[in-house]
């Protein structure tokens, strides 16, 4: 067996793949968080709950309406996005003029509420959710073992991440969004409906979390706590990447996924804190994050 630094090559390449897969979830989730923070200046603590909602809506669509995985992948994020829009329109909107802390507390409370409701309805053990039949199985080569479904997750996440980046950086609506981030009053004076833009942005960010939730459902247990397990890491990713930086969130997501995967090979006990150690170092050396601008 080929060894590198005393570790079998299969294990090493396997970990790199796993790092990429986990990184895909980190990237998708932190991207939504970054988009929301960039425009709304809201630290969306409910992001993990919307991720959980995505997985549960997919499960419900299958359970009650008999919808398959692909249908759910399309419809569940739309439902989650609509739920996000409703939250923004009816509640979050009222907090824009107050201190940021209120938005943070509100979304944190919302996350606890959603988690509590789902725990009450469905318990903590979660619900079974299988990958679509055509995506079951494993690709096995001499170097690496990857379940087909996880390969799909990496591809899907890359497409969505760079699609979103292109949408924001290369299109007209993206330019409105960026302009509104800089100076929303001026943009409004030009006749752009900024309140609508804010609602759409929040809904879009939540929808991204919903997509991540559906993608995650066949891999992790669909359970009410799946979001809170993830959210702390996601915040670390966003902080390392630079709050509000789109490309930063994507790149850091994949990067930290890889670092975490490799830590699991060389020093498994530290895998849980590797990301936070990096966060501490980055904050010490570059307080605005790797891709953030000082302001």
């Amino acid at each position: 067996m080929t060894m590198i630094f005393g570790v079998p090559l299969v294990v090493l390449t396997g970990q790199v793949m796993i790092g990429l897969i986990n990184g895909s979830f980190y990237a998708l989730l932190s991207l939504g968080l970054a988009v929301i923070f960039g425009l709304l200046r809201v630290v969306n603590f409910a992001h993990g709950a919307f991720y959980m909602l995505g997985a549960f809506v997919a499960w419900m669509l299958g359970q009650y309406l008999g919808l398959g995985y692909w249908g759910s992948l399309l419809i569940a994020p739309i439902i989650v996005g609509l739920a996000g829009a409703l939250v923004e329109r009816t509640m979050l909107r009222r907090l824009y003029d107050l201190d940021h802390l209120y938005g943070l507390l509100f979304t944190f409370g919302l996350a606890l509420l959603l988690e509590g409701v789902f725990q009450h309805l469905y318990g903590v053990s979660g619900k079974p959710f299988s990958a679509p039949v055509e995506m079951r199985g494993v690709v096995r080569t001499d170097f690496v073992t990857v379940p087909v479904y996880r390969g799909w997750v990496v591809v899907a996440s890359l497409l969505i991440c760079f699609g979103t980046w292109a949408l924001i950086e290369k299109t007209k609506i993206g330019s409105y969004l960026r302009a509104a981030t800089e100076d929303s009053i001026l943009v409004q004076a030009f006749g752009v409906n900024v309140p609508l833009l804010l609602t759409l942005t929040y809904a879009f960010g939540c929808g991204l979390a919903g997509i991540a939730g559906v993608l995650a459902a066949p891999i992790f247990q669909v359970s009410p706590t799946m979001g809170s397990n993830m959210i702390i890491i996601i915040f670390a990713v966003v902080v390392v990447g630079g709050m509000g930086s789109i490309l930063g969130a994507i790149a850091t997501g994949y990067l930290l996924g890889l670092v975490e995967g490799l830590t699991k090979v060389f020093y498994p006990e530290a895998a849980n804190i590797a990301i936070f150690v990096i966060m501490a170092i980055v904050l010490l050396l570059r307080p605005a994050g790797l891709f953030g601008k000082e302001n």
Partner: peptide, 13 residues
Amino acid sequence: PRETSDFSSYLLQ
């Protein structure tokens, strides 16, 4: 660690 969400690394080992 308790409440691990990803076991793939351990499973590969």
